[in-house]
Design a protein around this nucleic acid. Structure first.
Length: 572
RNA sequence: CGGGGCGUAGCGCAGUCUGGUAGCGCACAUGCUUCGGGAGCAUGGGGUCGGAGGUUCAAAUCCUCUCGCCCCGACCA
């Protein structure tokens, strides 16, 4: 491709509305343009990276035995009513009517459609296992789209759905997908972790998220420094092999703590460490239950663990008036002593003695509080957020490291939620009717490309890994008006094309500075600079974008040498 | 949806408080010089000041309504 015949509108400055690096660089490098909030056009330069990502996914999915299909974006309400999600999905589901006033929605995911296909076409266990996937544009009317392709409303997703006769089969399908996902993200050259994730309301199932590691990631994850265990902090388990409650040595004592509400305030007022306090959180659940939760002062509550423990959809800090009603004091002074509501505590609290708690009265705390003697706890459980340094729950020696991650993929064992609701059944080898066991597997295609940029950039622009780069080589002719330079560049360009290398020839009549800045911005992995200076010696200059490494190559060997570089980079 | 902020040329912004002929930088076009890290000079084109209504002799500026966009929260690939 010749630059002068291509559409690659680069921007010198960051667009005012782009906050994160990948969004800024994708805009500046002319990969995407915004059409509406969370809705983007893929410009030629961006589209090709997206297509490369799709192709990698396609190859690995096919290799794992999945079969590609393509389902409609417009879904009839009928199917969604059957699964019950027409009512449940809420405003994120973009609904509309056709000319006959029939309800439709833009598919945000395709369990309904695929389950409909399978129940109508698969009748026997002999047709199983089956895994159907598609790469398609989805629409979710997100409350808050942001960060460019990172969280759009319209976005390209690969979604796959597996169907098996039984749980064991579904587990096998799941692990095939898990491995396929590892292959996909490895091939993209991404640093990632497959982490255990919360499986939410569908109990008994399991799920993994694939997280690309990046500072700007929206998710917090932990991984063991000794074994394979990794999990979203929402899910990360904490276990205590031995918990011994130390003997109480101090008397319970009421102390005045005027105006000291937060843990930090109370700790510094009493001149003790935050971990000598026990905080009491008043929590309200989706079932309208109000409970008190005790945590060591320096710990954070994991609301998902709590909700799962209580069997509720959610568990959140109670509103102010509820706290007052439960404790008799304003927010900031709750404590477990003489509290009327149910008290549950994080396991770690069991290892504490002579601690400080709130006094359930304005400006009052207790010191020297002790479990059992001063108050009762109805249940101990793992309720806190994991942090770096916590012991691994799976191995004896490991400790957690913490990371930020961008969720680019999610594999999920669905069970029979949809097959049951929509009556997707087959006959087994005894002629008995069996409900299909499903799994679903998603990859955010655009998000993965954005994540790759988050992970591969510097102050000058992006450094996309070779497998995702739209152009593998850039031939930059320093001065197109110099005949020797122009001819050598054209020759190199042609040779590279003939070798099947994806090459961009910067044939613009621009000053070198502009060309170099653009080259760095758009991040072509390998740059060949053809300038009069080196050409006199018969050389051209190779610069590796990611490392900045430079070397001189004889003009005659350059094309072949570059092809070797490209092949090596693609091989990983 | 709650809280905060912004809409002025393709991009980045000033001008709004205190009403008086719409500006700057970049980009774009033309010419000359320049040419290995976002050049210089000159000339030029491009704007319903997000939209509607109102106040006024006069509105980008004041008032009312409205639309869009961004950031922080709950959701998710």
């Amino acid at each position: 491709m010749r630059y002068t015949q291509y559409l690659l509108p680069t921007l010198k400055e960051n667009p005012a509305d782009a906050e994160v690096i990948s969004h800024q660089l994708m805009m500046r490098a002319g990969m995407i343009r915004k059409v509406a909030a969370g809705v983007y056009s893929y410009m030629p330069f961006g589209l090709r990276s997206i297509r490369k990502m799709e192709q990698i996914i396609r190859e690995e999915m096919n290799k794992a035995g999945a079969i590609e299909c393509l389902m409609p974006m417009a879904n009839p309400a009928e199917l969604w009513q059957e699964s019950g999600r027409w009512e449940k999905y809420g405003k994120e589901l973009l609904r509309f009517k056709d000319r006959k006033e029939t309800d439709f929605c833009m598919g945000p995911t395709h369990e309904e459609v695929v389950t409909d296909i399978v129940r109508n076409t698969v009748k026997s266990y002999k047709q199983l296992p089956l895994n159907l996937y598609q790469i398609q544009t989805k629409f979710r009317d997100e409350i808050r789209p942001r960060f460019g392709l990172m969280r759009g409303r319209e976005f390209i997703m690969k979604d796959a759905y597996s169907f098996d006769l039984d749980d064991a089969g579904a587990d096998a399908s799941y692990s095939k997908m898990y491995q396929a996902y590892r292959n996909i993200f490895n091939r993209c050259g991404l640093k990632f972790r497959a982490v255990e994730a919360d499986s939410g309301a569908i109990g008994g199932s399991f799920s993994h998220e694939f997280m690309v590691l990046a500072e700007s990631g929206e998710d917090a994850i932990v991984s063991c420094d000794a074994c394979e265990y990794a999990a979203n902090v929402e899910k990360a388990e904490l276990i205590y092999r031995e918990i011994a409650t130390p003997p109480a040595t101090a008397e319970l004592q009421k102390v005045d703590t005027p105006g000291q509400k937060t843990i930090e305030e109370v700790a510094s007022f009493l001149k003790i460490e935050a971990n000598k306090l026990v905080k009491t959180l008043i929590i309200q659940t989706s079932d309208d239950e109000v409970v008190a939760v005790l945590l060591r002062g320096d710990r954070e509550l994991n609301e998902i663990k709590l909700a799962n423990l209580l069997g509720a959809d959610w568990a959140l800090p109670a509103e102010e008036h509820v706290v007052k009603e439960a404790t008799g004091a304003p927010v900031g002074f709750a404590g477990p002593i003489n509290l009327k509501i149910r008290v549950i505590a994080d396991s770690e609290v069991q290892a504490m003695a002579d601690f400080v708690v709130g006094g359930n009265a304005v400006d009052i705390h207790y010191t020297g509080a002790n479990l059992g003697r001063d108050f009762e706890v109805s249940q101990f459980a793992d309720l806190r957020q994991a942090v770096a340094g916590d012991p691994c729950p799976r191995c004896d020696c490991g400790k957690f490291e913490s990371w930020r991650g961008i969720e680019v993929g999610h594999v999920f064992k669905l069970g029979t939620k949809y097959s049951e609701a929509m009556n997707a059944v087959v006959l087994d080898d005894e002629g008995k009717t069996r409900t299909l066991v499903m799994g679903c597997y998603g990859i955010g295609v655009g998000r993965t490309v954005a994540a790759a940029i988050e992970q591969n950039h510097d102050g000058h622009g992006m450094c996309l890994p070779m497998p995702l780069a739209r152009f593998q080589v850039l031939v930059s002719m320093v001065n197109p008006k110099d005949d020797a330079v122009r001819e050598a560049s054209e020759q190199l360009y042609q040779e590279l094309l003939d070798l099947g290398v994806e090459v961009l020839l910067d044939d613009r009549d621009e000053r070198p500075g502009i060309k170099f800045k653009d080259a760095d911005l758009i991040g072509v992995p390998l740059r060949l600079t053809v300038g009069a200076r080196n050409l006199k010696e018969g050389n051209v200059e190779l610069k590796v974008r990611a490392t900045g490494e430079m070397s001189l190559l004889p003009l005659a060997d350059a094309a072949k040498e570059l092809q070797r570089h490209v092949d090596a980079a693609l091989a990983g």
